[in-house]
Simulated scan of single mutants.
Amino acid sequence: MISLGTHFKLNRFLLLIIGLWPMQQSNLTRFQFIFLSSILMTGILFQFTAFITSKCTSDFVVKILSSISFFSIFVIKYTLFYLNIEAMKDLLMQLQDVCNEIKDKNEIAIMKEYNCNAKRFTTALTIFGICSVFAGIIVIFCSSIFSILLSINVTHSHHLPFTMEYFIDQEKYLYLALVHLSVIVCIEAITMIAIGGMLFAYFQHTCGMFKISSHRIKCAVLINTLEDIKSQKMNLILKGIISAINIHRQAMKLTKLLASKIEKMLFCLIIVEVLALSLNLLRIFQIASYKADIKEILFPFIFVTITVLYMFVANYVAQDLTDHNSDLFATVYDVQWHEAPLYVQKLILFLLQKGTKEFTISVGGLFVGSLECFATLVKASVSYFTVIYSMQ
């Protein structure tokens, strides 16, 4: 028996930290959401307040908006995932019901293989997140740390790595502001890892269901080569094909259901990610052109890298689902269906006809998840960056 509680163990732990594990909601998790989302919102709010106390030149606006747009990605993801928490719970229960019906040891092995893929991805994402957070915090505190290590007795004008207005004496309360910023970075990293890892694991299990469907088709057609009583053979072939079609339909249903539930989140993320990528590319170009302090280019470069990686992974997952669906119909075409009885050949022809329509994940009817879509989004971001720069 396949237990999602075991398969999603690491994802469960990460989601519990930020109060987003769908199967365990309580007053405590509601408090976690309010508390953590408030901290994330302050990260954006205190950047917006900088417009009140500073002169709004075009360079300054780009500098502020480039970081605000990146921070907004995590606020959108965290908030909208929480609003769909009940839908996620229902989807996990449906996935568990499907897994409970899988009894064949070969099919269980297939699901375990895809679970291992999900675990490896989540583990790699966790390691990447920890390293990024550690590096980010070091950079945030670097000027103060270097001053202590080098015992420099010269007065330095310390400042935050992002332009933020707390309406306090930032020289006096610098470390308090740095701790606040570090907490925001940690919450954002956990949010990225937990939600991204959870969605990847879910889609990997649906990919496993597509693979099981292909496996059942192969087994059903191979039965035709066995020497057995004709009526028993016919029943086994039909039973195998029907079970393959059923799990294929369930995989498509669960994929489409999840895509529909998180469609608003994905649509908002696509818009904000394209904006963040364009603005941070512009920020990097500004720093390089004006020969400003090279340290200022670090965070825009990190923002661009993370945004591009996240867009790539999201589209790669959608492409992987499309490929797994196509593999099923490739399997149907490749098996020795011509040796099967005539009624089975007719059934297989219906399957092949259905395979002419590509299975895709679309967002708002405008974006179809694929590697081609990833290339289009990056190209659009570069185009917007060029337009904004030419307008300055």
Rank of each mutant, 00 (worst) to 15 (best):
G136E: 06
A118P: 01
R120T: 07
N84F: 10
F121G: 00
M93D: 15
N115P: 03
I76V: 09
L91D: 15
I85G: 12
K77F: 02
M88H: 15
S66P: 08
A135I: 09
I110D: 13
S69L: 00
F60R: 08
V62E: 03
L95T: 06
E107Q: 07
I68H: 07
A87Y: 12
C99I: 05
K112W: 04
I76W: 04
Y82S: 02
V62H: 01
C99N: 15
N115I: 08
S69F: 04
V61T: 12
Q96G: 00
F128I: 04
N106A: 10
F134C: 09
I130K: 01
A135V: 03
Y82M: 04
L92Y: 11
S132Q: 09
L95E: 02
L91P: 11
D59W: 11
E101S: 12
S69E: 01
Y114K: 12
F74G: 07
S66F: 03
G129L: 01
T123F: 12
I110E: 15
C131H: 03
L95Y: 02
M88S: 15
K103W: 07
S132M: 11
V62R: 07
N106F: 12
G136W: 01
A135Q: 01
N106W: 09
K63M: 11
I108C: 00
D90K: 15
N115V: 08
D97E: 09
N115R: 08
K103C: 09
D104R: 09
G136F: 04
E101C: 13
F128L: 13
D104M: 04
T122K: 00
F60W: 09
F70K: 01
D90A: 15
N100T: 06
T122Y: 03
L65C: 13
V139L: 12
E113Y: 12
T123W: 08
I64W: 06
L95G: 14
G129W: 00
M93V: 15
S58L: 11
S69Q: 02
L91A: 15
I102C: 02
F60M: 12
K105C: 10
T123L: 10
N100M: 02
G129I: 00
